Amino acid sequence: MPETPGAPERRDARSPSGRDATLHAALDLGTNNCRLLVARPAREGFRVVDSFSRIVRLGEGLSRTGRLDPAAMDRAYDALAICAERLGRREVPPDRVRAVATQACRAAENGLAFVERVAKGTGLKLRIIDPSEEARLSVAGCANLFDPRAEAVVVIDVGGGSTEISWLVRGAAGLATVAWVSVPLGVVSLAERLPEPDDGSAAWYAGMVDEMAAALSAPAEAVELRPLFEQGRAHLIGTSGAITSLAGIHLRLPRYNRDRVDGLWMTRGECDAAIERLRLMGRQGRAADPCIGPDRADLVLAGAAILDAVQRGWPSERVRVADRGLREGLLLEAMRRPRRRRRRWSGRSQPTT
């Protein structure tokens, strides 16, 4: 998380109601996960005081039916009810809760109806954000992982139903986004499109990489950056549960450890070796691995294939793993903007740092 270990926290500020007015919360309901962060501003960034994450697979079957499945909605609703209970227990002021929903609710015919059900039943007011805002927030959440020497960076935010990719170039004011795309393939949709065969063959994995590469139509501004990557003057940043799981496999962790994964640099060769190890483990082996588990066993290779496809288009020897992203971007934006000047972003422009 964008927090500074050892930095002194600001003094608690209590509102007349007794609530801790320094607390902020960010909730991200994605196609695969429901995640909550509650944090307090620190000298730089913030300090997390509570967090929650649950795989809900809200978008399960969405690519086939165009609708959210009743069982999937129930799973997501139950997770959101837990989030609402935690926010109530922490007494986070309602005007400091930023709750968003992404691809599954965007794409589903009944996505808005589900959001209304959540508001009525839990009090949580989810805002369905568009892909441009999702990309912008992911970049903001990862910004302090950019190598200050890099001339360009690609941020890959792999979701359950879509992947947002942002290209940044260094200018006089630092790194700024010059192009972005949202590809309608994520770990859930790609895994459903190309289910894993019993033998987990290399040809099947290569097919997922090809599927993502074919779906990725990059703007001219992005294509022009390829030489910077080929010359070692740029790097990639990958943010998703699949990519952090890949890092855990590379490190051979006995259990997932965010402190060792977040900010980890991996070479292209290390990524390839970890991917091959994942494939050879098979679904049962991945389910038993403490860095993956049964909920991600059938999805993690789809995430690896998405990263692989982007690496082939923008070859870089260095990939930085980010256990952070959209939620952190929401929190940083909320904490940095004076409340009286805070306005909803229109989504009409491309994301910038």
Rank of each mutant, 00 (worst) to 15 (best):
P2G: 11
T4K: 01
R10T: 04
R14K: 07
R14T: 09
G18P: 08
A25L: 06
A25T: 06
N32W: 12
C34F: 05
V38K: 07
G45K: 03
F52C: 13
R57A: 15
L58Y: 12
G61Y: 06
R64A: 15
T65V: 14
A71M: 03
A76I: 02
Y77P: 00
I82L: 07
C83F: 12
E85V: 01
L87F: 10
L87D: 02
R89I: 10
R90Q: 15
P131G: 02
S132E: 14
E133L: 12
A135H: 05
A135Y: 06
R136D: 13
V139N: 01
N144S: 14
D147Q: 13
E151L: 08
E151S: 10
A152G: 00
A152S: 03
G159N: 04
I165F: 03
G171D: 03
A176K: 06
W180I: 01
L185Q: 04
V188C: 08
E192F: 02
E196I: 14
P197D: 04
P197Y: 10
S201E: 08
A203Y: 03
A203V: 01
A206C: 07
G207R: 07
G207H: 00
S217N: 13
P219R: 14
A220S: 11
E221C: 07
E221T: 01
E224R: 14
P227Y: 12
L228K: 08
Q231R: 14
G232P: 01
R233I: 00
H235F: 03
G238P: 00
T239Q: 00
A242E: 07
I243D: 02
T244N: 01
T244W: 01
L246C: 15
R255D: 12
R258N: 09
L264T: 11
E276L: 09
G282L: 02
Q284Y: 13
D289Q: 04
D295T: 14
L301A: 05
A304C: 15
S316D: 04
S316R: 07
V321K: 03
R324D: 01
E328N: 10
G329E: 12
M335Y: 15
R336Q: 10
G347V: 09
Q350C: 13
